[in-house]
Design a binder for these strands. Sequence first.
DNA 1: CTTGACACTGTAGTGTACTACAGGGTGTAC
DNA 2: GTACACCCTGTAGTACACTACAGTGTCAAG
Lengths: 144, 144
Amino acid sequence: MNDATNNTTLTIGKVARRTGIGVETIRFYEREKLLPEPARDPSNGYRRYPESTVARLQFIARAKELGFTLRETRELLELRAGPATCGTVRAKAEEKLGDVRRKIEDLRRIERALRTLAEACPGEGALDDCPILGALEGGFGDGS
Amino acid sequence: MNDATNNTTLTIGKVARRTGIGVETIRFYEREKLLPEPARDPSNGYRRYPESTVARLQFIARAKELGFTLRETRELLELRAGPATCGTVRAKAEEKLGDVRRKIEDLRRIERALRTLAEACPGEGALDDCPILGALEGGFGDGS
DNA sequence: CTTGACACTGTAGTGTACTACAGGGTGTAC
DNA sequence: GTACACCCTGTAGTACACTACAGTGTCAAG
């Protein structure tokens, strides 16, 4: 992450506009260790972010939308930056894989229920005429 | 959801133990309209929940883990209970389907990156020896 | 130089989602 | 009757994730 070969760095405001994440939130993420402290412009103390920060922040935003807490997101990001050995990375990656696969499976259930619902409601009609309106329930928790 | 034919109803504590969700949270969900108000035992005013409440609460818990806000969860649950016509249900269900599919796609990306990571780290070795440790980044936001 | 946007640090406040508690009532076993 | 678990309502507090603000410095255009 050294931009010595590429001089393009961004101020915090530029990063914010690029990502739709507020400057205050970006500084918050730095405090929470989701972002590394960026280099500073020596002449004014302003943060200078590498271009890669944009992708990192977009990852963080998406992870939040997928139900990951900030701590979990940080752990995902640290997989490549933290542990000392490859074996540790592998073990942690596989643990996270289990979480991710479960989320996918659950979302698939919701998708199926919603699709069934949409296909069962082709047009006009009272709700009483849609016998599959209970499709959303029973799709969960009981191992179907 | 009428238990006239099935007398089994549950007190709030039983529902809480069955679901792992606290009684106070259950009452909170009722206030937030995620749960309908249950019938009451006339002799003491206690809530009596139908058996189906357990599945409903498990759905709510899982939806939260999947990144749905309570409002979004409520909207999902209201798909079968709210709008007046089948056509409206269909339109809303399809809107939600879009959200769900995007979440699935994003999770798939994370899954792939994690799998790549795990497979690239077969055992011991310094992190510098894992050239794919950057797999997590760049997997997002750019439509790669 | 003036003006307005942008940046800084540190503190305070907001929204969401719970969670705990106070005070009091109910049920059951001993 | 006692003790304890359970229930009720309503209020207050906590955790998480931001978001706003105060006071001050910096930059760039006019």
